[in-house]
Computed example of a mutant assay.
Amino acid sequence: MFVRLTEEPALNFEAYFGEMALLVAGDQRVLAEQIRHTIKVAQYPNVRVRMVPLNAGRQGILNSGLVLMRFPDDPDDGFVFIEAVGGMLPRRSGRDVKRAERAFARVERCALSPEDTITALERKLEELT
């Protein structure tokens, strides 16, 4: 997938994650490496990474993992993949895509800016190292 982010035609990629992901107990070296990698990739001009802080409350929570894909040759259509037991379920109906768009819009309103997200990640990295 990295090639799709770095070589033309490069994909536009926008990702949201909850601050809780930085608080999960586990191998601190692995978390630090993941943070370093996220900071590096977030510098690409076609990538936006945004953190939803804990104080966002219910508005910043998704009920499940979502992947929303749009294609330049068909901007009115798209795919949404919804996380479920056993994997990601693909949905192409306009209704499902619209529902995912509304969920992302809600999370986007709650998320930190890309710059503030990088600052938060750098702060967490300092704590870990």
Rank of each mutant, 00 (worst) to 15 (best):
R91W: 11
I61A: 07
A120Y: 05
R36I: 00
P72Q: 09
S93T: 04
Y44K: 11
A84Q: 15
T6D: 08
G94N: 06
V107H: 07
V67Q: 00
I39H: 04
F104G: 09
V67R: 08
D27Q: 14
P72W: 06
A56E: 14
C110Y: 09
I35N: 09
G65K: 05
R109C: 09
K40Q: 11
R58A: 14
R58G: 01
A105T: 10
L62I: 03
E122I: 06
P53T: 00
H37T: 02
D74S: 13
D27I: 08
A56I: 12
G65M: 03
M51W: 13
R106M: 12
G18R: 10
E19D: 08
A32C: 11
K40L: 09
G57N: 04
T129R: 13
M20H: 09
R48M: 10
A25Q: 06
P90Q: 13
R106K: 15
A21G: 05
Q43V: 01
V107D: 07
M69R: 14
N12V: 02
M69I: 12
R91I: 00
A105N: 15
Q43W: 01
P72K: 06
A100S: 08
R36H: 14
A42R: 07
E122G: 02
V52E: 03
M88R: 11
L23I: 11
L89E: 14
V41K: 02
D74I: 02
A103G: 02
L23W: 15
D116V: 00
E127Q: 06
I82S: 10
